[in-house]
Amino acid sequence: MPSEKELDHLHRIVEALEASDRLGTKTIPQYLDYEAPPVNETEWLRYSCIPVYSQEEAKKDPVLSTSMAKALSLVSDVLSFRVGFLVVPLSWDEEGYPVFPFDQKSENLRRNLEGCEKTVLFAATIGSGIDRLIRRYEKADPRLGLLLQGLGAERVESLCDCFNAEVEKAAAGMRSAASDQVDPATRRRYSPGYGDLPIEVQREFLPLLDAERRLGITLSDSCLMAPSKSVTAIIGIDKEA
């Protein structure tokens, strides 16, 4: 049974997808707040440089579990989970590349979005509190610093997963009742900086979401985001949906 919050999110995502059918590119970004998603411990440890196959063994070490507990308690009241998203209808240029409000000729993205008619651009962040904690503990206690680093990565990825699942649900729910589609209604999310999609598109991507004001995400000269535990990505929505 989805929570009230999730229902509200679904409702707003569906509304935004529909609005894009009516208004084309004239839609505006939406913002969603999330509760902390459950911690995926396997991913957390993997991001902390402990490979999956050795995690069972590693966790037997009481010192590691103490540090893990400390990391969890340190982050418990400093994180905020926010996503901003914008629905962008897709068109294709004469060479067959998808057209976005930013410049790119990415082969990977073209393949990823083939057969889609719109996309969801989003930015997710867990805020800057985690960066302060990492700063503090990578000096005072490097092992804890590493675990916090890993936990931050896991937190923001889990946040993306939550949002991604909602987009999938919303898009799948919008298929016509007659459709017997069982395939996913969305494509794997694709981020600036992956493959041949240059990270420089961030300079145009983030302003589309008013990310500085609404999410507190700023960009450095070399296109790194601050807070560091932030993610931007593109999700393709299938034509059927």
């Binding site: 402990i50 490979p51 590693a58 010192v63 540090s67 206690d141 490097p142 092992r143 675990l147």
Partner: peptide
């Protein structure tokens, strides 16, 4: 030899 991982290496280093 991948018998211990980075967190343990850091502990020893500390």
């Amino acid at each position: 030899k991948k018998k211990v991982y980075l967190p343990q290496l850091l502990m020893a280093a500390e």
